Simulated scan of single mutants.
Amino acid sequence: MNLLLSAAFVLCWSSGFIGAKLGAGSADAVTILMWRFLPLAAVLGLVAVTLTRHAWRGLTARAVLRQAAIGALSQSGYLLTVYYAIQLGVSSGTTALIDGTQPLVAGALAGPLLGQYVSRRQWLGLGLGVAGVALVTVADATAAATGTVEPGAYAVPFLGMFSLVAATFLEGRSPTRTAPSVAMTIHCATSAVVFTVLATATGAAAPPAEASFWTAIAWLVILATFGGYGLYWLVLRRSGVTEVNTLMFLMAPVTAVWGAA
């Protein structure tokens, strides 16, 4: 079961980079993200008041605020930087590679923050993985320096990576466990509010008429959010930070396969 969940997580999470690329040609990042989360939040809200009301019983205001903060970091902050980087011209594969540095950061913090210490063998694997990420990213950035992508654009995905790491540890240090359906609803509602405010403030709320835009939205809602994002927290709770970090190294090659397909 864990193997199937892990495989599904890698497949669905990596699909998000391709979904962002599909929508980047037809709309701004905040437009895509607003229309990704508005219908999603509405559907999850309807489910919450009809089918999963029991899961909300006993939920405190503090727990809701914590989940809102986790959603703001793991969805709003992370996705905005990923989409913005791709909009700036950074390839989806390189964005996935930069996100691959997350395991080293999370591994360094897992001990002091969560008491989940990383073995020497695991540190060796993490170091080799990050070395590969750095090598490819620097090579890609150097090649793009003479093209249309500004070298500074490659710093944007790192901000998203740190945002996701912060959300992971905030969840790990939570004194109470929130039902996955409740957490997903709060996270998506938070993101819907954040991106609607950003899109409205920048005059980018109106969706384009292109069919490719709505294809990208459907792709992102079904595969990336329900599949990738939902499974991220499920695998994290079942297997821990180290297991999730190991799987994150697979995102770049799987994203490359998605891109080729």
Rank of each mutant, 00 (worst) to 15 (best):
M1V: 14
N2P: 05
F9H: 00
L11N: 04
G16I: 09
G19E: 01
A24Q: 12
G25A: 06
S26R: 03
A27T: 02
D28I: 06
D28P: 07
D28M: 10
V30T: 03
L33K: 01
P39N: 07
A42C: 13
A42Y: 09
A42E: 09
V47I: 13
L51V: 13
T52L: 08
R53S: 12
R57M: 02
G58W: 00
A61F: 12
V64D: 02
L65I: 12
L65R: 09
A69Y: 02
A72N: 07
A72D: 07
A72L: 13
S74L: 08
Q75Y: 12
L79F: 14
L80V: 11
T81H: 00
Y83E: 02
Y84D: 08
I86V: 14
V90I: 08
S92L: 04
G93N: 06
T95G: 06
A96D: 09
L97Y: 03
I98M: 05
P103Q: 07
P103E: 08
G107L: 05
G111I: 12
L114Q: 11
Y117F: 13
S119T: 15
L124R: 11
L124D: 09
L124N: 09
L124K: 05
G125I: 07
G129I: 13
G129M: 12
V130M: 08
A134H: 05
V136R: 00
T137R: 07
V138W: 13
V138L: 15
T142C: 12
T142H: 13
T142D: 15
A145Q: 12
T148G: 10
V149W: 03
E150R: 13
G152Q: 11
G152K: 09
A153M: 09
F158E: 03
M161S: 06
F162S: 11
S163K: 00
S163H: 01
L164N: 02
V165P: 01
F169E: 05
L170V: 11
E171K: 10
E171H: 12
R177P: 01
S181K: 05
V182G: 06
M184R: 02
T185V: 08
I186V: 15
C188T: 15
A189S: 15
A189T: 14
V193A: 11
V193S: 02
F195S: 04
F195W: 09
T196S: 13
L198V: 13
L198M: 14
T202I: 06
G203A: 09
P207H: 06
P208C: 10
E210A: 13
E210R: 06
F213K: 05
A216K: 00
I217C: 04
W219P: 06
W219R: 06
L220H: 02
I222P: 03
L223I: 12
L223T: 05
T225C: 13
G227L: 04
Y232E: 04
L234V: 15
R237T: 07
S239R: 08
G240D: 04
V241F: 01
E243P: 02
V244H: 00
A252V: 03
V257I: 15
V257R: 04
